[in-house]
């Protein structure tokens, strides 16, 4: 932030003054933006914080008005929530997210490579076709999907869920990865080819390491989407392979108070993703700030 003022060569007095003033303005503006960014950040984070706090309240404290930020914390809700069968839900979510993401990457990396660096004829149409599969709202396809799943014996199975999440995340992964591949300088590719590297070598030794942050970001987004997915899971897999979001909502009842229990189960549900994001944050920030998803 302060670099701009010192790095410039200074020759004449008036110019120096002007630069300094511009610099001061810039600093003021940047301080203002910092405040705004913090404000927006806190606003966006507040619901998560409130959920976290509510998870440690009793049910009656959770609904008390005005809401209390200072209260006697209790682990009662976590005890109730964990006294159920959390593990099978967690296992189902983990398998569905990780396996579908592995499949997505296996298919999306070659597809994105081809589209970005060896574009076939009408590559724009192909790209558009991929994303067009996401245009229809999920509710619009649920009935035919349900019938297909029933006929194929996929209702309530892990296979069904993995196929679904792979298909759901594939278009987004291809789009993201393609934009990362596009950022690779042509010269690098040419040099590799001159050196006689085949596609496999080019991919594993040159391209993938170069776009590693992009790949990390794509993997992360694919896992998040699969982990958080509720609608397909509740419609097609609730009996048999229920996932964490389904575990979460089972505390919602039409009879009696449930906010604190829901907050506790939601906290458990988001915890793995938050930890994953924390571990991968450096890669993520780089990945999300390059390519098309700026």
């Amino acid at each position: 932030m302060a670099v701009a003022t010192t790095a410039r060569p200074v020759v004449r007095q008036p110019a120096r003054f002007a630069i300094r003033r511009r610099g001061a303005n810039k600093e003021q503006a940047s301080a203002l933006w910092t405040v705004v960014a913090w404000g927006v950040g806190l606003l966006a984070f507040f619901p998560v914080l409130y959920m976290f706090l509510t998870a440690f309240k009793t049910e009656t404290a959770a609904v008390s008005l005005p809401p209390r930020l200072i209260f006697q914390p209790t682990l009662e809700q976590f005890r109730t929530v964990l006294s159920g069968d959390f593990l099978p839900f967690f296992r189902n979510s983990a398998i569905a997210s990780l396996v579908s993401t592995a499949l997505v990457m296996l298919l999306a990396v070659p597809a994105a490579y081809a589209l970005a660096l060896r574009p076939p004829k009408k590559w724009k149409d192909i790209l558009f076709f991929f994303i067009s599969t996401r245009f229809m709202p999920a509710a619009g396809v649920i009935v035919p999907l349900y019938i297909i799943f029933r006929e194929a014996g996929l209702l309530g199975t892990m296979r069904g869920l993995i196929i679904l999440y792979t298909a759901m995340n594939l278009p987004i992964a291809i789009w993201m990865l393609r934009s990362f591949f596009e950022e690779v300088p042509k010269d690098v590719l040419d040099a590799a080819e001159v050196d006689g590297a085949n596609v496999m070598r080019l991919m594993t030794e040159i391209l993938l390491p170069m776009i590693a942050p992009g790949i990390a970001a794509t993997i992360f987004i694919s896992i998040i989407f699969a982990w958080n997915e509720f609608f397909f899971a509740v419609s097609l897999a609730a009996a048999g392979t229920a996932t964490v979001p389904i575990f979460m909502v089972k505390f919602v009842t039409s009879e009696g108070l449930f906010w604190a229990k829901l907050a506790a189960s939601s906290t458990l549900a988001v915890l793995p993703i938050v930890l994953l994001g924390w571990v991968a944050q450096r890669q993520l920030v780089r990945g999300l700030s390059m390519g098309a998803v700026k």
Partner: peptide
């Protein structure tokens, strides 16, 4: 016994 427990609207739909 395998149980599926959901809120009213979701279980009705399912």
């Amino acid at each position: 016994v395998n149980m599926t427990v959901l809120p009213e609207n979701e279980i009705r739909q399912t």
